[in-house]
Design a protein around this nucleic acid. Structure first.
Length: 555
RNA sequence: GGUCCCAUCGUCAAGCGGUUAAGACAUCACCCUUUCACGGUGAAGUCAGCAGUUCGAAUCUGCUUGGGAUCACCA
């Protein structure tokens, strides 16, 4: 076979060569040990939490080695394209503290770096140059099978193959077409895709070292995978090889789902005579499927938290997500955090080697805990500003109300805050309304909020509240105030904790019960910050109104 | 079905042939607190199973089981 001639037939207008591009994109001038990493999402509408998981590794490795972390947009599948999605990816990376040093910086913005374009759809002349070379090398051939006509065809063919035998046919029949037939097909205008002429033997194996998985044996690739689709655009594999070579990625961090196709990628590198980068195949972030009870990959369709925007919309501090993800990556992070409560997480001695190779289960409860700790350390003024900023975008009603009662809101948030052991009640900002609704008449409806514990009888509640209404005095100090509440409780048959414990049957309840009744009557909740502070913020008139309402509605 | 990967409390996990099998979240109890919290102390809970190697196995080997990934002109 005359490969040179075949190459001319297939790519007669292609004049640029790989050598031209090797020269155009020379080796990076970086300090020894500096690693070049990248995240390469496809713009399909959202940025996946699993993507951020990997980007954390990329960013941290680049940071630790004084290297480069860049963003490349993999938009070679036009069908799945969603307008604006590349911006989403870039914005999410920025929000989640993994801003790229180089690459795509947003739609219409100037890209940063000398190795662009960083959007694959703009790199067509590069891909064709390498495609032509593959043909010249005798390592690629045109395939005229009409699998491209619809996804269904491929699906059916595949399922049929799976049913009929254990084996999927690797070698494509078109590899044996003679040049005359090819020429004829071309003349007839038949659509064609370019396939790798694989010369691997799946029986043979070789050693490969992955940065996370360690030393492994791989089978040689035998699949004549597609290098250029019939629309002339390369699918992932070929674009990956070319881009990461030309952009000089030193470590490719990607999900474990790529592991099975690694041997094919390596075969392309070898065919082209290019040294492949180092690889780090990360575990896949999973979740328990509520319906089936089984473990599965975090999926956008079923799990809102698979979309990084979810955490923004729910009002989590983005660092909380970073720290959680880092904890999944290197589980000793927690211990480090405990020992270094005030250092930025980027100071943590992160190591790729410490990444476990089993798939972690995504745990929102744990995130909430991390988040609560982080939020608890934010001073009230700053916290209010953060909540309002969030609410401006996601809950304008809340934003309005908070601004209308700005001073009160700030005092509310200041309760038990800015001290050595701050209160930890806010996990994310979308909880704020529910948590503090009783402070704002715009949100509070006491007729639906009365949830007294069943153990208190209506008459007991009414008696206590009636008594309390008589003595309520907001000019008292906290000690005096509580003393008044206590006296009032005693009159109604409640005792202080110690006395109560000695003979519970002699009393209606203890002081905690009495406080609980008053708290629920005023706020509708069993859990609020310090009641004294709440009452002062609410004002005497409002508190009396609420108490009277409860008394009358329980009578 | 083929190939590959994984397996320690409910979850994240230390562990690298000899440990009372760390720690964190969650759960529960108690203490502190004249309330809610914060905090403190403690409890419960794990080596998937079966063989083998070994004086000795969570750790090494094999099988079984369970789970995951993949087998596209998607990435």
């Amino acid at each position: 076979m005359d490969y040179k001639r075949l190459a001319e037939m297939l790519y007669k207008n292609v004049t640029l060569t790989p050598e031209y591009f090797f020269e155009k994109y020379p080796e990076r001038n970086l300090a020894p040990g500096a690693e070049v990493t990248r995240t390469a999402p496809s713009p399909t509408g959202y940025y996946h939490t699993g993507g951020l998981f990997g980007a954390m590794i990329d960013k941290l490795v680049a940071l630790k080695t004084n290297g480069i972390f860049y963003l490349r947009i993999e938009d070679t599948d036009q069908k799945r394209q969603v307008p604006g999605a590349a911006d989403v990816a870039y914005n999410m990376l920025c929000k989640f503290n993994t801003k790229p040093d180089e690459g795509f910086m947003g739609e219409g913005k100037k890209q940063v770096g000398e190795y662009g374009d960083y959007v694959q759809s703009k790199r067509q002349e590069i891909y064709t140059a390498f495609a032509k070379r593959m043909v010249e090398l005798g390592r690629a051939f045109p395939c005229f099978c009409n699998a491209s006509e619809g996804k269904e065809d491929i699906k059916i063919r595949r399922e049929k193959q799976l049913e009929e035998s254990d084996e999927i046919i690797d070698k494509d029949p078109c590899r044996n077409l003679d040049i005359a037939t090819i020429e004829l097909n071309l003349k007839m205008g038949k659509p064609w895709a370019l396939r790798l002429y694989s010369n691997g033997d799946p029986e043979k194996t070789y050693e490969f070292t992955d940065l996370i998985k360690g030393k492994r044996t791989l089978h040689e690739n035998a699949k004549d995978i597609v290098l250029m689709k019939s629309n002339g655009i390369p699918p992932y594999a070929f674009a990956h090889v070319i881009d990461d070579t030309l952009m000089h990625t030193s470590i490719v961090v990607r999900g474990e789902e790529w592991w099975p196709s690694l041997n094919a990628h390596l075969e392309i590198f070898r065919a082209l005579g290019i040294k492949p980068p180092k690889y780090a195949h990360t575990p896949v972030v999973c979740k328990i499927d509520e319906k089936t009870g089984t473990k599965r990959k975090l999926s956008k369709r079923y799990d809102p938290e698979a979309d990084t925007r979810y955490f923004i919309a729910e009002g989590y501090p983005t660092v909380a997500i970073n720290e959680y993800l880092l904890n999944l990556l290197n589980s000793d992070f927690e211990n480090w955090r405990k020992a270094n409560p005030d250092l930025p997480y980027t100071d943590f001695p992160f190591s790729i080697k410490k990444i476990s190779s089993s798939n972690p289960m995504f745990d929102l409860v744990k995130i909430n805990d991390i988040s609560k700790n982080i939020i608890s350390k934010v001073p009230a003024k700053k916290l209010l500003r953060e909540i309002v900023d969030w609410a401006n975008e996601y809950d304008t009603q809340l934003a309005k109300v908070l601004l209308a009662h700005q001073e009160m809101a700030e005092r509310l948030l200041a309760i038990d805050r800015e001290n050595a052991r701050p209160r930890k009640d806010i996990g994310h900002f979308s909880e704020v309304k529910r948590l503090f609704c009783y402070m704002f008449n715009e949100f509070y409806d006491n007729s639906t909020s009365l949830v007294f514990d069943d153990k208190y009888s209506k008459s007991d509640i009414v008696n206590l509240l009636k008594e309390y209404v008589k003595v309520l005095n907001l000019d008292e100090s906290k000690e005096q105030w509580f003393d008044t509440l206590k006296q009032c409780a005693f009159v109604c048959g409640y005792a202080d904790m110690k006395t109560y414990k000695q003979s519970p049957e002699s009393y209606k309840g203890n002081i905690a019960d009495a406080s609980n009744i008053v708290r629920v009557a005023i706020t509708g909740r069993t859990n609020t910050p310090d009641l004294y502070e709440i009452i002062k913020l609410l004002g005497k008139e409002e508190v009396l109104n609420r108490l009277e309402f409860v008394i009358s509605s329980l009578k």
